[in-house]
Amino acid sequence: MDPKILVEYINNVTVVTLTDEKILEDVDIKALEESLLPLIDQNSGLHMILNFKDVKFLSSAVLGLLIRVSKKVFESDGQLRLCSIDPKIAEIFRITRLDKVFDICADVDEAAASLD
């Protein structure tokens, strides 16, 4: 399985960059989930940034995954930020009102600064 994410640790923050330009197929979503959930399970109180800088297209199935990740982070007393979202994808978040559910920042620096 090709790597779907790049994980970097900056101070106490886990920055996860989604490396696929298009996240569509069940296998991609499953691979993402299997990569992300262990990170959260292994780190209570995780401060996580999901960096969308490379993502140009996603489907509603990915939104479901992001909600599952968000709940998992919240349940483990962590904090989640999304950042660097392409304007076309930001429109999907706006249409679905998920821009009210997620904390969305302009870039990694802004996201890191917003974490407690």
Partner: peptide
């Protein structure tokens, strides 16, 4: 409606909304 407050955090049900949008 997936945009209503009670459905906002559900993991599915947004496909038709996106097609209509």
């Amino acid at each position: 409606d997936p945009r209503s407050d009670e459905n906002l955090e559900k993991t599915g049900g947004r496909g038709v909304l996106l097609m209509r949008s």
